[in-house]
Simulated assay, not measured.
Amino acid sequence: MSAVAAGGSALAGAVATDAWQSARTGVTGLFGRAGQRRADLAEVWTDQTAAEIAAAPAEQQVEVRQRLARVWQQRLADLVEEHPELGEEVRVWAADLRQRLPASESKWVNTFIATDNATQYNAPGGSITVTNHPGERPAS
């Protein structure tokens, strides 16, 4: 889901910007729709994300943001998998957040979209090895 990818990237990009409080409140609210425990976890996770990015040396900031973007993408994907009715809310939140990001923070945000039963492999800032056997589909 492209909203999950965009949301995770935008959230990591929002740290230390004017968009951060809105991003934090929004993602906490999304997780809160799945229960108070999830909202509480999201608050802890957002605080940890901000602290980890702030503590990273300047030369490692992009790497740290990219790694944390992937973490948030997985968290959002898990949320939407468990609660598919939240998919549209995640999409709206991610689109709004991306609009709020300063240009300097949105330049590294990656969005990958695969459609029509396509298989897509992405490794922004990293590497990936793929062995593909035509005709075989990975188990869902």
Results as ranks from 00 to 15, higher is better:
T111A: 05
S104Q: 07
R100D: 10
S127K: 08
H83V: 09
L41G: 06
A58D: 01
R37L: 00
Q21E: 15
T28I: 09
L79C: 02
R67F: 15
L97A: 02
Q120W: 09
W72Q: 15
W108Q: 05
V130S: 01
F31E: 00
G125V: 07
R98Q: 11
E81N: 07
T129H: 13
A50L: 09
G87P: 01
L97N: 01
R65D: 10
G126F: 10
R67I: 13
E82W: 01
T111P: 05
E105V: 05
T129I: 07
Q36N: 04
A114F: 14
Q73S: 11
T131V: 08
E105C: 03
E89Y: 05
T131Y: 06
T119R: 14
T46C: 10
A77K: 11
S106P: 04
E89R: 03
E82Q: 08
D40Y: 01
Q48W: 11
S104G: 03
E105G: 02
T17H: 10
S22A: 13
F112K: 03
L30D: 05
T49P: 08
W45R: 15
A55M: 11
A123H: 13
E85N: 13
A58M: 01
G126T: 09
R38G: 00
D40C: 02
A94D: 00
I113N: 13
P102A: 04
T28R: 12
Q99G: 06
S104W: 09
N110R: 14
A118Y: 08
V71N: 15
A23E: 07
G35V: 00
E59R: 02
A58Y: 00
W72Y: 12
T111K: 10
A114P: 07
W72N: 14
F112T: 12
W93L: 01
F31D: 00
V90Y: 06
R33E: 10
A77W: 03
N132L: 08
R38C: 00
A51C: 07
A69D: 04
P84I: 05
A118F: 07
N117H: 09
T46F: 08
Q74E: 05
V62I: 14
A34S: 02
Y121K: 10
V71Q: 15
A58G: 01
A56H: 08
